[in-house]
Each structure stands twice: as structure tokens, then as C-alpha cells.
């Protein structure tokens, strides 16, 4: 750790890549990233574990929703409130954004800035459109007197769908951060790893939305 350890932006305090690199021999070189391939694996795996724990947290909200879905306290039921067209458009926006997010990670892999910015911008806009539709839906429910305080069913609905919406909001902030980081620092190895984690996060949000529109809007 003498000569500019952080100069390359790839400081590795645990020396994981070096140890692994020596055991694995020429494998890492096969990735074309030198000894850094292993670090990418460790980062991705760690973030995957986080995503699974996030999904487990969502499963608790899903369980609460499933238990409380009939407890409407004489208020409106899901069938009275939900607009399937709205849910379908939201689903389409999120699915398209997942696809463009995939294009962005391909562009990042090949270090093509123009495509990366374009794909990320489209991803962000689609995500923002999703959030606008969801906010309008929430506002119309509250205006009809079907806010989260109306019944246990609506509390569970707003918690579950709102929690997903908060994740999408956080994802859009992260997306803008990644665009700024690529703009300021270029496709450095550490930035590439952050883009990888962001892409995983965004795709995972879409997986949760699949469960959500099935359980909440369709069933």
C-alpha cells in the first residue's frame, strides 16, 4: 500500500483479488479485466444477497397484504378502486425501463458513453412516468376517501405499493448519480461495478412489480 493505492480507483483493502487471482491462475485474465474480475464477482454476489434480503422484506409486506385484503371495514374493496388499465400502463413502463436498463449495462460493459447516457436517460424517464401514474392513483384514492387510514386493507395496500414506489424513487436517484459519475470519472472499474449493482437493483424492482401487479391488481 505504498505507491498511490487508490490511484486506479480499485483499492482492495482485503486483497481479495490478489489471493483469489493466484489460486485461479489464468482464469481471471480470461475475463479481459485482469485480476479485477474476482472483485466484480464478489461485489455482484454481495449485492445479490442484499437484493434477496430486500425481497424477503417485501414478502413480509405481501404477507400482511394477503392477510388483510378482506378487512375493508365496510370501505371500498380492491375491485371498487383499482383501474386495470392504469396498472397495465405502469407495468409496461417498468418492463420497458428494465429493458433499456439492460441496454445501458451493455453500453457500460463496452464503454460506449453515448448509448449509456441515452439508455439510462430513457430508463429514468420511464421510471419517472411509472412514479407519476402511481402518485396520481394514490391521490385519486385519497380524494375518494380511500386513504391509508380508511381500512386495514388500504393500510396494507398503501404500505406495499408505496414501499415499491419508494424503491423506484431511490433507484432513479441512483440512476442519476451513476450518469453523473460516468460523466465525471468515466468507465473506471469501480464505476462499472456500481453500474452492475444499479442494474441488478432495477431488474429486481421489476421482479417485485410482477408479484405486486399479480397479487394486488389482478387477483
Amino acid at each position: 500500500m505504498t505507491a498511490l493505492p487508490y490511484a486506479s480507483g480499485d483499492a482492495d483493502p482485503y486483497r481479495a483479488s490478489h489471493e483469489r487471482g493466484s489460486h485461479q491462475g489464468g482464469h481471471a485474465a480470461g475475463h479481459g479485466h485482469g485480476g479485477l474480475a474476482f472483485k466484480r464477482v464478489v461485489t455482484g454476489y454481495g449485492f445479490w444477497i442484499f437484493l434477496l434480503s430486500d425481497i424477503i422484506m417485501f414478502s413480509a409486506f405481501f404477507a400482511a397484504y394477503a392477510v388483510l385484503v378482506d378487512q375493508t371495514a365496510g370501505g371500498p374493496t380492491g375491485k371498487d378502486l383499482f383501474d386495470l388499465n392504469n396498472a397495465a400502463i405502469e407495468t409496461a413502463l417498468l418492463l420497458a425501463s428494465s429493458f433499456t436498463c439492460g441496454l445501458a449495462s451493455i453500453a457500460a460493459e463496452h464503454s460506449v458513453k453515448g448509448w449509456f447516457y441515452a439508455a439510462m436517460a430513457v430508463t429514468g424517464l420511464l421510471g419517472a412516468g411509472f412514479l407519476v401514474l402511481e402518485a396520481m392513483e394514490f391521490a385519486s384514492f385519497v380524494a375518494q376517501g380511500a386513504g391509508p387510514t380508511r381500512s386495514a386493507f388500504l393500510s396494507a395496500f398503501f404500505t406495499l405499493v408505496g414501499c415499491h414506489g419508494l424503491h423506484v424513487s431511490a433507484g432513479i436517484l441512483w440512476l442519476l448519480t451513476m450518469m453523473a459519475q460516468v460523466f465525471a470519472k468515466g468507465f473506471r472499474a469501480d464505476i462499472e461495478r456500481r453500474i452492475l449493482c444499479f442494474a441488478l437493483f432495477w431488474h429486481a424492482l421489476d421482479i417485485i412489480w410482477v408479484a405486486l401487479f399479480t397479487v394486488v391488481y389482478l387477483m
Partner: peptide, 27 residues
């Protein structure tokens, strides 16, 4: 073994067309 990142597309590494095709099939 044990060396693939979630999110990494090993089969199509290096080929943009192949990678885009994977996402298109998924979509």
C-alpha cells in the same frame, strides 16, 4: 465454478448483438 456475477452475461461476453438479443428475448 463460482465465478459468475448476477447481471453478467457470460455466454455473450464481447458480442453486443448477442447481449442485446438476450434482453430482447427476455422482453
Amino acid at each position: 465454478g463460482f465465478n459468475t456475477v448476477p447481471g453478467d452475461d457470460e455466454a455473450d461476453a464481447g458480442s453486443v448483438a448477442g447481449a442485446v438479443q438476450t434482453y430482447l428475448i427476455g422482453l
